[in-house]
Computed example of a mutant assay.
Amino acid sequence: MKKIIFFEVAGGTDKGENGHRKDTMPMVNALIAKGYEAEVIFFDVEKREEIRQYMLANACAYVSRINPGNLVGEVEYFAMLRELCEHGIVGLPHPDAMVGYGAKDALVKLTDSNLVPTDTYAYYTMSDFFYQFPKALLHNERVLKQNRGSTGEGIWRIQLAEAVPTSATEVPLSTKIKCTEAKDNHVEYWKLGEFMLFCEQYIIGQNGMLVDMPFLPRIKEGEIRLLMLRNTPVNVVHKKPAEGANAFSATLFSGAQYRYDPPILWEKLITDFLAQLPMIQQKLGGYDIPLLWTADFILDTDDNGQDTYILGEMNCSCVGFTSELSLASKVADEIIACISEKRSLA
């Protein structure tokens, strides 16, 4: 029997005293207890060829436990994973699924569903940004999200801080705006054009982009995160922002309060979301649904005054479950199921 390999990277604040992520070894040990061979390899771009050869000779599957944005050699890592998948090694997840589900512009691919507002845009160039964003801001408050970063860094709520002429078709670049960053809910005042130039740092560079969507005021009631094990929700985290007029961030760093709920308490949201999973899977590249991933929702109100849920973000690059390590056995069962399904199709 070939091995199931878990990829990690050395160092980082997410590691325990043994050098591993706290949720990695529980999964490894759960697989071993179920009769499978499993081990951890620390990816090092300098040892890429050695690792590739070892995987081709010894592995039946890999589980990626690396946040690509923090990895030296991200391009090489993804290229190696693609090659391994092409050789029949089961990828959990496939590297292009990591991109499809994890990149912020996944939202733009879903605007023709009821999950994402139609006025949601992705900007890959400053020209596109300057063309569309002043028009969008004229109609409602906006949220800009950079593709990189974490814990709310580079996510900005944008509000007009002064009136705009009623005849305007877009917000003039000289208009004063109020900008609140989700990282810590701090407020800055800018002129629109100057702030947009400041945002160039988010657009330039590899995988640079900005996603622009309407601000949803009911974020104050909390963000709802589904932790998914493939197509099964295993828990729900209700993340309520801190009190305060400017607070909208749902991160622990910003003072948000977290509550862990059983999925049954969010039955309507989950039923609607699961019904749309085949559509989401197709629009995000047709790859297998990731092993562990999250989907974040914000409450909104539809035209009939009924509650609805807007998808704000998804992540599948390296979703952790350190607060619920008892899930390790379930995850191990799902890994085994993925391998068995691939074998039956071979």
Rank of each mutant, 00 (worst) to 15 (best):
I4N: 13
I4S: 12
F7G: 04
A10K: 15
D14M: 11
H20N: 14
D23M: 06
M27Q: 15
M27I: 08
N29K: 07
A30Y: 03
A30I: 08
L31E: 02
I32R: 10
E37C: 01
E46C: 09
E46S: 14
I51M: 13
R52G: 02
R52Y: 04
A61H: 09
A61L: 10
R65G: 05
R65V: 08
L71W: 12
L71V: 03
V72D: 14
Y77C: 01
Y77M: 01
R82S: 08
E86V: 04
I89Y: 01
V90Q: 05
V90H: 06
L92M: 14
M98E: 02
G100I: 06
K104D: 02
D105H: 08
D105L: 06
V108G: 00
L110Y: 11
L110W: 05
D112H: 15
D112E: 14
N114A: 15
D119E: 00
A122R: 07
Y123F: 11
Y124K: 09
Y131H: 13
Y131C: 12
P134T: 08
A136K: 10
A136P: 03
L137R: 02
L138S: 12
N140K: 11
N140F: 06
V143Y: 02
V143M: 05
L144K: 07
Q146A: 13
N147W: 03
W156I: 12
Q159A: 07
A161H: 08
A163F: 13
A168H: 03
S174K: 11
I177T: 01
C179S: 03
A182V: 09
L192C: 12
G193K: 03
F195C: 06
Y202F: 09
I203D: 00
G205V: 08
V211C: 07
V211D: 03
D212N: 10
M213Q: 15
K220L: 02
E221N: 10
I224A: 00
R225C: 06
L226T: 12
M228A: 04
N231H: 14
T232M: 15
T232W: 05
N235F: 13
V237A: 05
V237E: 09
T251K: 00
F253C: 08
Y258D: 10
I264H: 13
E267I: 06
D272Q: 09
F273E: 01
Q276P: 02
M279V: 14
I280F: 03
I280H: 07
D288R: 01
I289N: 07
A295I: 08
L299W: 04
D300E: 12
N304E: 11
G305A: 01
G305I: 10
Q306M: 08
Q306R: 15
I310W: 08
L311D: 04
E313V: 07
N315D: 10
C318T: 09
V319A: 04
T322H: 12
S323P: 07
E324Y: 07
S326T: 13
K330H: 11
D333F: 06
E334M: 13
A337F: 09
S340W: 00
K342R: 13
A346Q: 12
